[in-house]
């Protein structure tokens, strides 16, 4: 179906973005292909080694209602429970959020920080793309005509690791992030030194942004306010925000610092158990 109709066809998962875009005339859709009947696209499987694979159309509420997943991937739950209202979460999927490829998508920094990979199927077979390479611009991504995102896989969390996602919105729900951020840190066994870190930020560039320099600023350094401040500076340096109705350049630069610090602190707390 997707191959046949090309650009006129879109994959329908929860429809919480697609149907609204079609109704408002922002996206010209001739054919919607509902993939919720495909078992792989709605799976939620936690492997014995702790690795996780979720179908691209698996709903947010299915994810946060799974106690084992919630325990092992709290940052994913931070994201899944923030996207839309409770009603929306019963339909909306992480895969849909990723394929919508909004710069402020609330799941994408988390997927990046958790080191997730996208499993894509198409006429030419299957391929795998790291999440940070998936989005190519606002509402644009690497999917070619005829291709669909089938599932997203996550490596098992390392020992002494923790991750946290936060977003800033003017209200307390039902809003688009002015800035969002996810930090995933691994500590030494004594919990005093960063040994690995992945940090991603959103709504401050054409795509959600993986900031290796922010993680690098932490690795090998003691857990301290000074170390964390360095990571925040690196994240701020990577951000190239714009001014629009949701926030200004200065405000977003400032908030990157605030949110990266807050998420690192929360991630450290989770890593220490």
């Amino acid at each position: 179906m997707l191959a046949k109709h090309g650009a006129a066809a879109r994959v329908l998962a929860g429809g919480t973005d697609l149907i609204i875009q079609a109704r408002e005339g922002r996206r010209d859709v001739a054919v919607m292909v509902d993939v919720k009947g495909i078992a792989e696209a709605t799976q939620l499987s936690l492997a014995g080694d702790g690795a996780l694979r979720i179908g691209a159309a698996t709903s947010c509420s299915a994810i946060y209602h799974n106690k084992d997943v919630a325990k092992a991937f709290p940052a994913l739950i931070d994201s899944a429970s923030l996207i839309g209202s409770v009603q929306i979460q019963a339909r909306a999927s992480i895969g849909g959020n990723l394929c919508n490829s909004g710069p402020a998508g609330d799941s994408i920094p988390t997927l990046i920080a958790l080191g997730a990979a996208c499993h894509i199927a198409g006429p030419a077979g299957e391929r795998t793309v790291p999440v940070e390479e998936f989005c190519t611009g606002p509402s644009r991504n690497v999917l070619q005509n005829g291709e669909m995102l089938v599932s997203i896989s996550f490596p098992a969390p390392a020992a002494h690791s923790g991750a946290a996602f936060e977003r800033f919105i003017p209200r307390n729900e039902m809003d688009i992030a002015v800035v969002n951020a996810c930090s995933n840190v691994t500590l030494s066994a004594d919990g005093q030194t960063f040994t690995a870190a992945r940090i991603a930020i959103g709504a401050v560039a054409p795509t959600p942004l993986y900031v290796p320099a922010a993680g690098a600023a932490l690795v090998g350094q003691p857990v301290s306010d000074a170390t964390i401040a360095k990571a925040c500076e690196a994240a701020q340096a990577a951000a190239t925000p714009i001014t629009d109705m949701r926030g200004s350049v200065e405000q977003r630069h400032h908030l990157v610092g605030v949110l990266v610090r807050r998420t690192i602190n929360k991630a450290v707390k989770r890593a220490r158990g």
């Binding site: 209200r171 307390n172 039902m174 809003d175 688009i176 949701r246």
Partner: peptide
């Protein structure tokens, strides 16, 4: 739209 014209929600 009510997404960006922010009337308070019950959580606000």
């Amino acid at each position: 739209s009510y997404l960006d014209y922010r009337i308070p929600t019950t959580l606000d």
